[in-house]
Design a protein around this nucleic acid. Structure first.
Length: 681
DNA sequence: ACACCTCGAGTTCT
DNA sequence: CTCGAGGTGT
């Protein structure tokens, strides 16, 4: 470091490092369509460099990525110069930054400002040129000045008109976002998985990749879609006064305009809009990574003008990152009550989507292979549906040299028995029925809420009892040695009394609950209920033939065989006998018969109701002859919505036009079996 | 044989 | 929530 240089060498080195990283990621993003860090992480790098350069203007070099937008186009496609440059937008990451933007604007214009707010679709920005109403060219944004000619590929997108309707201008350049709908992304990845091909990491990547096909018929097969949001070049069009008007005009010409666009008067409302979509973004069939806020009045826009990099009249409010990268320390398998060996990722804990994530399921061997994640990899992690962590995929460029593929273990990590995967199945199983993991799991399941519902008898209690050799199987719950339990840490007189009461109460649960608790393969609560209703008693089921069981509506050959085999095994008959000796005496499946008002109806409940739990509401539907499935389909009669409904269900209901009921309407439906009149309008 | 709907099983974190 | 697989109707 030179003595005349006031800037510390650390900062110089850091700036250089950041430039290299940014250039590298630019290339991954723009040329290879294979970004390996999230947009937010990329933005963080750029901002750090900008901060350094602002504090030390001497360090700014003309070739610094901060002086450029994007990167140069590749050679695969012809270059296209945009006659009106496609500028990028400044970003805001907080309400404060949004307000600062508003303040800066006040220096340029007078009076009130209206804002046109649009969802920021996470797709590929596109410029579409129409001459005399005909589609003539499509180009990517590229570096903002020069993009790539993707005319034949984009022509296959059905949402993009080939011929404009109405009275089109001589020349119009329409800008918007090409994106892959989530449903299409899932379909595509399912297809990839079936073919044993590598999965696409996210919809944006697959969208960009689909556009860069030399063979446009591949693009066509990908079902991309489009939202228009801006007019670029224009010759001979009508005069507009607001951005909103231009959007309406684009719509009249035949372009899809996102229905969630809103004009709002103040930044407080704008911020509420941002927060609303941050919360609701999972209800959409496409990914968004923020909100774009534009000054609505075009006169005001002209007054505001632009800096060299971005217009002053627009800003992108970016959501906090949903995806983060972290180190995959190891892959282990856990053994469930059925013996199923489920691989899961053990990661360096990372804060993502509102909580710290250290573990995530990998589902099965094929999923690990398809994602190609290996211990030692840096992996991308996100929240699926806002709650469940998910490993998206590895960051290949950060993979240590020679990192070996993960091998599915051949022995159970708990009991050492062989792990076996049968032909044609995706799951691997521990073959030892006495495996402690399975034994404990079965007992926990027996005592769980959908089964015998024994409060206080969760996995911690069961594991303690198992370790002390106090319990062998589910029947052992009713013959516990309470004197010994009272000597255990944490089991005083009160908790023991509570446990005893809970166990006593479980003896008279409905038959379906007992069946659910027995751990019969393929027999969960719903099918147990079907069986219990059809057969009436445990004895009937135990003495029924396989044919009789499979004759029950909804029970096929596989479940029938599983049930029949379970009751034919001596060890299981012995367990049942001991349960009965202990006084377990299930109540008949149907308590007092209610008027069957709901026959033929299928009602989905979501959220918490005030007077009934969701389970009780579903019970009420079934007890009246109706169905209460867990998801909405076109067969669904109605959706009952309580507090905090599931966005997916609500959205699907709206999509399919399924009536949505509140609690009062639901209670009327239960009584009468009739839907309320749809509201007019 | 296939599409579609359901179900079961394992899952994370507060 | 996600995955895989069973059941049913075409």
């Amino acid at each position: 470091m030179s003595p005349t240089d006031p800037v510390s060498g650390d900062v110089v080195a850091r700036a250089e490092e950041l430039r290299d990283q940014i250039r590298y990621h630019n290339r991954r993003y723009h040329e290879l369509d294979d970004p390996e860090i999230s947009d937010a992480e990329y933005d963080a790098l750029v901002r750090e460099l900008q901060a350094i350069e602002e504090a030390n203007p001497d360090l700014v070099t003309p070739d610094s990525p901060t002086q450029q937008v994007g990167s140069a186009p590749s050679e695969l496609f012809a270059a296209v110069r945009h006659r009106v440059p496609m500028m990028s937008l400044d970003n805001a990451f907080s309400f404060e930054e949004l307000q600062a933007w508003g303040k800066r604007m006040e220096r340029y214009i007078e009076g009130g400002v209206e804002f046109c707010c649009e969802l920021k679709i996470d797709g590929v920005a596109m410029s579409l040129l129409y001459e005399n109403g005909r589609y003539t060219r499509a180009a990517t944004r590229g570096d903002g000045q020069v993009g790539e000619d993707v005319t034949p590929n984009v022509a296959t997108i059905s949402a993009i008109p080939d011929q404009l309707s109405g009275d089109p201008p001589a020349v119009i350049e329409v800008r918007g976002e090409v994106y892959m709908p989530l449903a299409e992304f899932e379909r595509l990845n399912k297809e990839q998985a079936e073919k044993g091909l590598r999965l696409f990491v996210n919809p944006r990547n697959s969208g960009a990749g689909s556009l860069r096909q030399k063979d446009a018929s591949i693009t066509a097969s990908r079902n991309l879609s489009f939202w228009a949001y801006q007019v670029g070049e224009l010759e001979g069009g009508p005069p507009f006064t607001t951005h909103w008007d231009t959007l309406q005009y684009l719509n009249e010409l035949g372009f899809p305009i996102n229905p969630n666009i809103k004009v709002l008067a103040g930044l407080d409302d704008v911020f509420r809009y941002c927060e609303r979509w941050l919360h609701d973004r999972h209800t959409l069939d496409y990914e968004i990574d923020g909100v774009v806020i534009k000054v609505n009045d075009l006169g005001q826009r002209r007054e505001l003008g632009a800096t060299s990099k971005a217009p002053r009249w627009a800003i992108a409010y970016k959501f906090p990152p949903e995806e983060r990268t972290t180190l995959l320390r190891n892959i282990q398998v856990s053994i469930g009550r059925t013996g199923k060996a489920t691989p899961f990722a053990e990661m360096e804990p990372v804060f993502v989507g509102g909580s710290t994530v250290g573990m995530a399921t990998l589902h099965n061997q094929d999923q690990v292979r398809a994602k190609d994640v290996r211990p030692g990899d840096t992996v991308v992690v996100r929240k699926a549906g806002d709650v469940i962590p998910e490993v998206v995929g590895p960051v290949l460029s950060l993979r240590p040299e020679g990192l070996p593929e993960w091998e599915f273990p051949t022995e159970c990590p708990v009991c050492g028995a062989p792990l076996v995967r049968l032909d044609g199945e995706s799951d691997t199983f521990c073959t030892n029925v006495d495996c402690p993991a399975q034994r404990v799991g079965r007992i926990v399941h027996f005592a769980s809420r959908g089964a015998m519902d024994i409060e206080g008898f969760g996995d911690k209690t069961v594991m303690t009892f198992d370790r002390e050799g106090l319990i062998e199987d589910i029947a052992g719950i009713y013959t516990l040695d309470w004197d010994r339990i009272r000597q255990l840490e944490g089991f005083g007189d009160i908790s023991v009394a509570n446990l005893q009461t809970a166990i006593e109460a479980s003896k008279s649960r409905p038959l379906a609950n007992l069946l659910t608790g027995l751990n019969i393969r393929h027999l969960g609560f719903t099918n147990s209920q079907v069986l219990a209703r059809a057969m009436g008693s445990l004895d009937r089921i135990m003495s029924a033939s396989e044919e009789e069981i499979s004759a029950v509506e909804g029970i096929g050959p596989v479940i029938a065989a599983s049930v029949h085999e379970f009751f034919s095994l001596d060890r299981n008959r012995d367990v049942i006998r001991r349960l009965q000796e202990a006084g377990v005496n299930p109540q008949g499946p149907s308590a007092p018969t209610l008027p069957q008002t709901m026959v033929g109806l299928s009602v989905v409940v979501t959220g918490t109701l005030e007077r009934l739990s969701r389970e009780a509401a579903e019970e009420a539907i079934k007890a009246r002859g109706g169905k209460a499935p867990g998801s909405v389909s076109k067969k669904t009669t109605a959706v009952v919505v309580g507090e905090g409904p599931g966005a997916a269900k609500l959205n699907k209901a709206q999509e399919l036009g399924v009536p949505i009921l509140d609690e009062a309407a639901f209670e009327r439906l239960l009584e009468t079996g009739e839907l309320p009149e749809p509201a007019a309008g």
